[in-house]
Write a protein that binds this DNA or RNA. Structure first.
Length: 467
RNA sequence: GUCCCCUUCGUCUAGUGGCCUAGGACAACGGCCUCUCACGCCGUAAACACGGGUUCGAGUCCCGUAGGGGACACCA
């Protein structure tokens, strides 16, 4: 049997971390079984659904590299089919018309609450035979649920979960205005789309009991269920703005690589022994539902960042350039020269070793910009005292005579100059770093000089020593 | 209030009755390396929520307690 999974978000906000992980798990599971991954937008609530949210979901998934194998389905466009099924259930006596108004229901619940009883629907219309004229009144359609016994779900993640049928009321499948509810729509769509495995957040576990009976009422086979635990914020409660409740696009803006995000999401609630760094290929090869944990996990930005440093270091220089160019443009407010871009690419090995995010990478790469004179940072300025400046002009003289201009020969000459002046290498290197980059922090200064080349290096030195 | 789920270092987790004096990773702390900052390397501290069972033996199975989370719509 071919595996078909789906990700079915409601377009009421952005694609948050939990949704992204659900999508990833569905996608991975489908790929692992060489099946299909589908996307369905659950927009049965027209008032709350926005096209902006739909766009955000699409772009979020695209960023993560999670692509669906069929065009996305919009649930609202299937409403004719949903209504047809409801009508059929009505005809078969498996559903019934309910004439209760909103007010009737709130009053019923209020009363139930004051009596300390359950606030489920009391089924007052279940056996009611409407008159001809009443049939013209607006009514909703409710599904008949079993009134006794228990319902058992065999969930791949949660195991056997049992609930007494007293807790299942006759829920509405068609609203008085004739539109189908979510509860009906999911079941019909999951069946029509041939979904074999429903993998979703365990906030849906309770719904699953209701949906199970709908599947039965329609005589459809029930897909396999896997309810995965939710992701909490770092405080253990709901996701806050601090951490994961942000849309995935904000992580992109924070300079997180999509591979890092995927890897992090994968390890949140799922594991494969002690493996931490997991490539997409390995993820597809290893992913299974049985290794999903049953307890909720917390979002930890530090670990995400750690993964990010790993993936940055392992990205190609060209790739990184393409990522940071737009960020540099934002920082500078203008394009940078092709000379600078070339330098950044050659300086990338040292740069990418030191960055936790693409933002950091973009910032630190600015030392290779061509703009002159360079800006000396506040805490760096003190290194350019008269004593150090004379040291630097001495170094300038020595370097002028150099033929070969590479890392090792540069290191040699700086060491020699330091030795001749009876100072330690660091006493020479720090002023040099400040003079060339304007900062006390940079990649290896020898690497920096090699990237700059002889002319630029001497030029920058001269600017500083002359002033 | 009712129903459902969860509980191993601060965090993510390994663990499927003896291999556990509980392993890895992130973070923290200390050291080494060192031209700065990082990286890297070495090391330290850190957990089976609690109470009862079952068993020769329990982190692992069962029951209870506590704590956390989720669900109880004409939302999805």
């Amino acid at each position: 049997m071919k595996v078909v999974t789906r990700f079915a978000p409601s377009p009421t906000g952005y694609l948050h971390i939990g949704g992204a992980r659900t999508a990833l798990f569905n996608w991975l599971f489908a790929k692992h079984h060489e099946g299909q991954f589908l996307l369905r937008i659950e927009d049965t609530d027209r008032r709350r659904s926005t096209s902006d949210a739909v766009d955000k979901i699409f772009s979020g998934l695209k960023w993560l590299g999670i692509e669906c194998d069929e065009p996305p389905v919009f649930q609202s466009s299937n409403s004719t089919r949903h209504i047809e099924i409801a009508q059929k259930l009505l005809n078969q006596g498996k559903a019934y018309r309910c004439f209760c108004t909103q007010d009737d229901l709130t009053e019923m619940r209020k009363k139930a609450r004051s009596e300390g009883k359950t606030r489920l629907y009391d089924r007052r219309c279940r056996d009611y035979k409407p008159t001809e004229s009443e049939l013209n009144n607006s009514s909703s359609i409710r599904i008949k649920m079993p009134t006794e016994g228990k319902t058992l779900i065999n969930d791949i993640v949660q195991g056997d979960v049992k609930v007494s049928n007293d807790n299942l009321d006759d829920f509405i499948i068609i609203r008085p205005d004739g539109t189908p509810t979510y509860m009906l729509a999911v079941v019909v769509d999951d069946h029509d789309m041939g979904i074999t495995h429903i993998i979703r957040g365990d906030d849906h576990l309770n719904n699953a009991f209701r949906q199970l009976h709908l599947f039965h009422a329609c005589d459809w086979t029930v897909p396999k269920l896997a309810h995965i635990p939710l992701i909490h914020g770092s405080d253990g409660a709901k996701l806050s703005k601090r951490d994961g409740s942000l849309g995935v696009e904000s992580y992109e803006k924070m300079g997180i690589l999509k591979d890092a995000m995927n890897n992090y999401l994968l390890r949140l609630g799922w594991s494969h022994g002690n493996e931490e760094i997991i490539s997409r290929d390995k993820a597809i090869e290893w992913f299974n539902l049985n290794s999903i944990g049953r307890s909720p996990s917390r979002f930890d930005t530090e670990k995400l960042l750690n993964l990010n440093t790993h993936y940055i270091r392992n990205s190609s220089n060209k790739e990184l350039i393409s990522y940071i160019l737009p960020i540099i443009f934002q920082l500078m407010g203008s394009e940078i020269s092709s000379i600078a871009i070339d330098r950044i690419e050659r300086g990338m090995p040292g740069l990418k070793q030191r960055s936790k995010s693409l933002i950091e990478l973009a910032r630190s790469s600015l030392i290779y910009n061509t703009e002159m004179p360079i800006l000396i940072q506040k805490d760096a300025a003190e290194h350019l005292n008269p004593k150090n400046i004379s040291l630097l002009s001495c170094l300038h003289q020595n370097m002028k005579k150099m033929g070969k201009w590479d890392h090792d020969s540069l290191e040699e000459i700086v060491r020699e100059t330091a030795e001749d002046n009876n100072i330690k290498l660091r006493q020479m290197a720090q002023p040099l770093r400040v003079a060339l980059t304007g900062s006390t922090v940079s990649p290896s200064i020898f690497e920096v000089m090699e990237v700059f080349g002889k002319d630029e290096t001497l030029n920058r030195l001269k600017t500083v020593t002359k002033v």
